[in-house]
Amino acid sequence: MKKVILTFSMGLLLLAAHAQQKQGRVLYERTIQMDMHIEGLVPANDGPALPQSHKDKLEVLFGNDQSLRRTMDEEMPEEFSERAGAMHATMMVGDAADVTYNNFATGQVIAQREFGAKNYIVTDSVHKLNWKLTGKTSTILNYPCQEAVAQLIGKRAVIRMENDQLKTEEVPDTSSIVAWFTLAIPVPAGPEYQGQLPGLILGININDGRTIYTATEVSEKTDVAVIKAPSKGKKVTVAEFNKERDKMIAEMQRNGGGVRVMSTRQ
């Protein structure tokens, strides 16, 4: 009995020690399954196959009730192309150069988004999902985690070939989300869904593996001064950014140029 009590007490002390961490840096690996179909486009037999998945790394800095998410890769993510007649389309993983700032005290979200060689500063607020705890637990990087699930009703981009032209449209899309968070670090930061759960998110699985975030390193060291809202770019609302993006895509399609597909989280 003494051994059991001692072990339990040591566990509480370890959890209490972790719970003091209110600032830090987390590295994540993100894997995106490239489930892409272009109606009317037949890939050449001798051409390169489209990649089945894309991996990249990003970091999240948190402290002073704020967080900052940014990609780690210095180069742009891998591009791949497919040629159909005279039409040449360039597909690219979205949000490669984006920076997202969250203020947990105010619920404000400020993102720097790049599109068409232009930078935009998009101001929004946290749109909380209806999270439910499943009671399942796990351990990630020695941190005890709890599982939370939710559904996100949004939109996704669909590319179609019409009259030898690529057309992009947004269709309704419902995503199932599984997140693993730890109360040992009581900060609502993470690679996605910041400000929505009571602890640091260390893992996310969207639509049974279509997108997976996995924490690979957690550190208490971070430069808190770096955690601030981005400011370089045209200031717009989410609706204004989507309008300018759609206008630019339509113009590129009319000119027969490349089409860049960005991920849309609405």
Rank of each mutant, 00 (worst) to 15 (best):
K2D: 08
L6C: 03
F8G: 00
S9D: 07
G11P: 01
G11A: 07
L12H: 12
L12E: 00
L13T: 08
A16G: 15
G24M: 00
V26F: 07
T31C: 04
I32Q: 01
D35C: 00
I38Y: 10
I38K: 11
G40R: 03
L41W: 05
L41T: 05
L41N: 01
P43R: 08
P43W: 09
D46P: 11
G47V: 11
G47L: 11
G47A: 12
P48Q: 06
K55A: 14
K55T: 12
K55R: 09
D56M: 14
L58Q: 12
V60M: 06
L61P: 10
L61N: 10
G63T: 14
N64E: 06
S67Y: 04
S67A: 07
L68H: 02
R70W: 02
M72T: 07
D73L: 01
P77F: 12
E78D: 07
E79D: 08
S81I: 13
E82P: 05
A84T: 05
A86N: 12
A89W: 05
T90E: 15
M92W: 02
G94F: 13
A96G: 06
A97I: 07
V99M: 15
G107A: 13
V109M: 15
A111Y: 13
Q112K: 15
R113T: 13
F115K: 02
G116P: 09
N119S: 09
Y120G: 04
S125Y: 00
N130P: 06
N130Q: 14
N130C: 05
W131M: 09
W131S: 07
W131K: 08
W131E: 11
L133A: 15
L133S: 15
K136T: 06
Q146K: 14
A148L: 08
A148I: 10
L152V: 02
G154C: 08
K155F: 03
V158K: 06
R160I: 13
M161H: 04
E162M: 05
N163P: 00
P172Y: 04
D173H: 01
D173N: 09
S176M: 11
S176T: 10
V178E: 09
A179C: 14
A179L: 12
F181C: 11
F181M: 11
F181E: 00
A184K: 07
I185F: 03
P186H: 04
A189W: 09
E192M: 02
Y193T: 02
G195D: 15
G195W: 05
G195E: 01
L197H: 13
G199N: 03
G199Q: 10
L200I: 07
G203W: 13
N205G: 02
N205K: 04
G209H: 01
Y213R: 02
T214Y: 04
T214C: 03
E217I: 00
S219M: 04
E220F: 00
V224M: 06
V224I: 09
A225M: 11
I227F: 06
I227A: 03
A229N: 03
K232M: 02
K234P: 00
K234I: 15
K234R: 09
V236P: 04
V236H: 04
T237S: 15
F241P: 03
F241Y: 14
N242G: 08
K243Y: 05
E244G: 06
R245N: 01
M248W: 07
A250R: 08
A250N: 05
E251P: 02
Q253R: 09
R254Q: 13
G258F: 13
V259I: 15
V259Y: 04
V261G: 02
M262Y: 09
T264Y: 11
T264C: 03
T264L: 10
Q266F: 12
